[in-house]
């Protein structure tokens, strides 16, 4: 039984169809790397999974909740599906710990003390124990992104969606974020990553999805797919990025 099931999803922005019937099954513990050119629909697909974007036809079921338009119980869905963004999107008026504590206290009605303990735990996991009381503006990009990951982890998500989370970082800061993601993968967290880090996709991913013109063009075990891409489009793409 898959944790996230995507069936023939179509989405258009106006007359521009960006998803042209995407189907994908993601099991618990999968680390799915979605790669592809910009405009291939990979970020849009990711954003459909937690309801940040709506889609016109098909179906997405995540953790038993059907993600479809206005009737979706988005709150319940998002309690179990975390998301990390390219631009971090930390709340600048709150400290690292407060960023992490916000959703547990407000949404899950956890006590301040308990939430602070959780914050300490997840911030330690991303290696930022000593930055609990720092404001986002006092942190580097890599540190901010790790706080953003911790913020999602505090809700104990069943799936974590990562939307090009290293693309806005200076090259020397990319690895500290990838190490955190790798550790999560090792602990069995289900991850769906839109990424440009091909080596990371190959080494950490359990499943590779190559998107092209709004469709899943090729998918499989990362090492095999990278070693022997079947389609000319993926061959060309792999040739360009590596």
């Amino acid at each position: 039984m898959s944790l996230v099931s995507i069936r023939d999803v179509r989405k258009s922005f106006g007359s521009n169809e960006v998803l042209k019937g995407v189907s994908l099954d993601i099991a618990k513990g999968d680390v799915v790397a979605i790669i592809g050119r910009s405009g291939s629909g990979k970020s849009t697909l990711l954003r459909c999974i937690n309801g940040l974007e709506t889609y016109q036809s098909g179906s997405i079921v995540a953790d038993g909740i059907e993600v479809a338009g206005a009737n979706t119980n988005l709150r319940e869905l998002r309690r179990h599906v975390g998301m990390v963004f390219q631009q971090f999107n930390l709340f600048p008026h709150l400290t690292a710990a407060e960023n992490v504590m916000l959703a547990p206290t407000v949404v899950n009605k956890v006590s301040k003390a308990e939430a602070r303990a959780t914050a300490a735990e997840v911030l330690a996991k991303v290696g930022l124990s000593e930055k609990m009381d720092a404001y986002p503006s006092e942190l580097s990009g890599g540190q901010q992104q790790r706080v953003a990951i911790a913020r999602s982890l505090a809700m104990r998500p069943k799936v974590l969606l990562c939307d090009e989370i290293t693309s806005a970082l200076d090259p020397e800061l990319v690895n500290e974020v990838l190490r955190v993601v790798e550790q999560l993968a090792r602990e069995g967290m289900t991850l769906i990553l839109v990424t440009h880090e091909m080596r990371f996709a190959r080494d950490v991913g359990t499943k590779l999805v190559f998107m092209h013109h709004g469709k899943v063009h090729e998918e499989g075990v990362p090492k095999e797919v990278f070693a022997a891409p079947r389609t000319p489009e993926l061959q060309q793409f792999v040739g360009q990025v590596s």
Binding site: L52, R75, R78, F85, N89, V107, S152
Partner: peptide
């Protein structure tokens, strides 16, 4: 917009987003 998206993704309702994230800023 990212502030809305991040707080949405953390399951905050509209009123909660306004109160804890948007209005303080």
């Amino acid at each position: 917009k990212g502030q809305w998206e991040a707080s949405s993704s953390l399951a905050l309702s509209y009123i909660e987003q306004m109160r804890y994230v948007i209005l303080p800023q």
